[in-house]
């Protein structure tokens, strides 16, 4: 399988209930968290498995490519 391209996560804070479920399923190493008990939103994720988006009880996680310029058109 080709390695997925890195992504940056975006959290819709209005719906987030700060429950930490996204962090619990995240396979990243220590520290990939935000101050609001969610996965980090300030740096790219190079695993890009997206299971954090699935577990979220209110589906408030989305993502965009980490380097839009490097993406094929």
């Amino acid at each position: 399988m080709p390695k997925p391209a890195p992504v940056i996560f975006d959290i819709g804070w209005n719906a987030c209930i700060n429950c930490g479920a996204c962090v619990a399923v995240c396979p990243q190493e220590a520290g990939f968290i935000s101050p609001f008990d969610t996965i980090a939103t300030d740096r790219p994720c190079d695993i890009a498995c997206m299971i954090c988006e699935d577990i979220c009880p209110v589906t408030t996680i989305t993502h965009r490519p980490a380097e839009p310029a490097a993406q094929p058109a």
Partner: peptide, 19 residues
């Protein structure tokens, strides 16, 4: 430190839960 535990990860323990 609960569900979102980082302490185990500090020591390299694989603590994340399967979906």
């Amino acid at each position: 430190d609960g569900l979102q535990s980082q302490v185990g990860r500090w020591a390299g323990l694989r603590t994340h839960i399967k979906l």
